[in-house]
């Protein structure tokens, strides 16, 4: 099956080159989604969910996803392209909180609305922002680890790439909670660059440096938490005895939660992508636009409200992953 796919790749490439523009009688909207990079699972989930939005499925909206390749300049160039190609609107997931502002500025000059999603950008020209608050996630994961170790003991923190908005805010959340517990000591705090393989090596070394002293592990994302768990297992320690937390809810992490090896909170990529598109379409179409995604009803009980679709900020709540909801989450992805 997959090998077949590999063989079909050449065909796909040549087809993509030819392109196809089907004539349609109703108005279609050209939307560009500039995302920081498609190498991680999270952004893949985001992009897939965007393509599942009702308006994209029925052909009203034509989405082009631009892979920023983790580079601010690449993203900037992609904004130039979208402006000259006269896109109707842009969904933006910036790699850099500061550098992203230049692209937003360019689009604003061309009167193209830009809605931010997932990661923040420092610009007042942004039409709106649909994302989740990373400080809260940092607090939730720290709280769960510290509670699990009984409010005292030693923890280590695996950090994201220093300087990225998610790392800065999740660290802030971690520290908000740590400040409340005087009996919890942070033995080590170092970046593993969101990477499972890096976290695996780092944790192996920490388990040697602090043999028997590490009581809990705070991973600022799931990938690193999963790497740490593998290191713990390799030492012959039962991962259930060292509470470990991650953030995001990637597929492997949901499985690990199901097995009781870690805790995590789901950052709803689907809600961020589809909610972002709804808010963007409201800005393009006008007050008559009604949101099409079901995320607005899904999270209404937790305080997410569409209002008239013109708020500057929409906060998608985090959902703790539990053994009970894990299966449903896994099923929704396949």
């Amino acid at each position: 099956m997959r090998l077949l796919k590999l063989a079909a790749m050449t065909l796909a490439i040549s087809l993509a080159a030819t392109g196809s523009s089907l004539a349609q009688d109703k108005k279609t909207y050209k939307i560009g989604a500039a995302v920081y990079g498609l190498k991680g699972e999270f952004m893949q989930l985001w992009a897939n969910a965007l393509k599942e939005h009702p308006l994209v499925k029925n052909g009203t909206v034509k989405v082009t996803v631009f892979d920023g390749n983790y580079d601010a300049l690449t993203q900037n160039n992609q904004f130039d392209t979208m402006v000259t190609q006269k896109y109707d609107g842009i969904l933006f997931v910036p790699i850099d909180i500061q550098a992203g502002a230049a692209g937003v500025e360019k689009a604003a000059e061309a009167k193209i609305p830009v809605v931010g999603s997932n990661t923040r950008v420092n610009s007042d020209k942004l039409t709106s922002y649909v994302g989740s608050n990373d400080v809260i996630a940092g607090e939730m994961e720290a709280e769960s680890v510290i509670k699990a170790i009984g409010g005292k003991g030693n923890v280590v923190i695996l950090e994201g790439p220093i300087g990225q908005s998610a790392q800065i805010e999740r660290r802030k959340g971690n520290q908000n909670v740590l400040a409340k517990y005087k009996d919890v000591k942070v033995l080590e705090m170092k970046t593993a660059n969101w990477s499972r393989a890096e976290a695996l090596s780092l944790m192996e070394n920490w388990l040697t440096a602090h043999a028997g002293k590490i009581n809990g592990i705070i991973g600022q994302n799931d990938e690193m938490a999963l790497g740490a768990i593998e290191a713990v297992k390799a030492k012959g320690i039962d991962p259930k005895t060292i509470p470990t937390a991650g953030i995001d809810g990637v597929t492997d992490a949901v499985r690990a939660v199901k097995d009781g090896n870690m805790v995590s909170v789901l950052q709803d990529a689907a809600a961020q992508a589809q909610g972002g598109l709804d808010v963007l379409m409201r800005a393009i179409v006008g007050p008559n636009y009604k949101p099409q995604s079901d995320i607005w009803t899904k999270y209404s009980a937790q305080g997410l409200s569409w209002g008239d679709g013109t708020a500057k900020h929409y906060n998608i709540p985090w959902t703790p992953i539990t053994k009970e909801n894990a299966d449903a989450m896994l099923a929704a992805r396949k």
Partner: peptide, 14 residues
């Protein structure tokens, strides 16, 4: 690039 195409950029677990 082929690595990302092969499984739509998703890891293969289990």
């Amino acid at each position: 690039g082929m690595t990302f195409i092969y499984n739509d950029g998703m890891p293969i677990a289990n």
